[in-house]
Amino acid sequence: MEEWTVKINRCAVKKEKPHTDQLEFGRVFTDHMFVMDYSEPLGWHDARIIPYQPLSIDPSAMIFHYGQSVFEGLKAYQTPEGEIQLFRPEKNLQRLNKSNDRLCIPAVDEAFILEALKQLIYLDKEWIPTAEGTSLYIRPFIISTEPYIGVAPSHQYKFVIILSPVGAYYKEGINPVKIAVENQYVRAVKGGTGEAKTGGNYASSLKAQEICAQKGFAQVLWLDGVEKKYIEEVGSMNVFFKINGKVYTPALNGSILEGVTRNSVIQLLQHWDIPVIEERISMEDLYQAYVDGNLEEAFGTGTAAVISPIGQLSWEGKDLIINDSQTGKLAKSLYTTLTNIQYGKEADPFNWVEKVSKAYAVKQ
Rank of each mutant, 00 (worst) to 15 (best):
F299G: 07
N183G: 10
E182K: 02
T193R: 03
P349V: 12
V166I: 09
V108R: 04
F25M: 11
Y169L: 00
L206E: 03
A76T: 05
Q288L: 13
D285P: 00
V234Q: 09
D124N: 13
M1W: 03
R95K: 01
P129A: 05
T339N: 12
V108A: 04
E132F: 11
K228M: 06
S56F: 07
R139F: 12
A305N: 08
L120R: 01
I128E: 04
N244T: 06
G344I: 13
T130E: 14
K197S: 11
A188P: 02
A61R: 00
G302T: 08
F240A: 06
V356W: 01
Q214D: 09
I341E: 01
T327L: 04
E132L: 06
V226R: 08
N92A: 10
G300S: 11
A12M: 11
V247I: 13
V189I: 14
P147L: 10
A180P: 00
N97K: 01
L117I: 08
K190D: 06
S314E: 12
I211V: 09
S39N: 15
A12T: 14
W4I: 02
I161S: 07
D324E: 15
A47R: 07
Q342M: 14
I149M: 15
P275N: 04
M237F: 11
K91L: 14
I307D: 10
W352R: 07
R262G: 11
T130F: 00
L330Q: 13
A347E: 15
D124L: 13
K355I: 13
D285H: 08
T130K: 15
S333R: 03
Y360D: 09
R10V: 03
G328W: 03
G191Q: 05
A203T: 14
G225R: 00
F350R: 04
M283A: 14
Q267R: 11
M62C: 10
P89V: 04
N294G: 00
V220G: 00
D285N: 14
K158P: 05
V70I: 15
T327V: 12
D224F: 03
H45V: 13
E284G: 01
I49V: 12
S60I: 03
C104Y: 13
D31H: 10
V226D: 14
R88P: 07
E126Y: 10
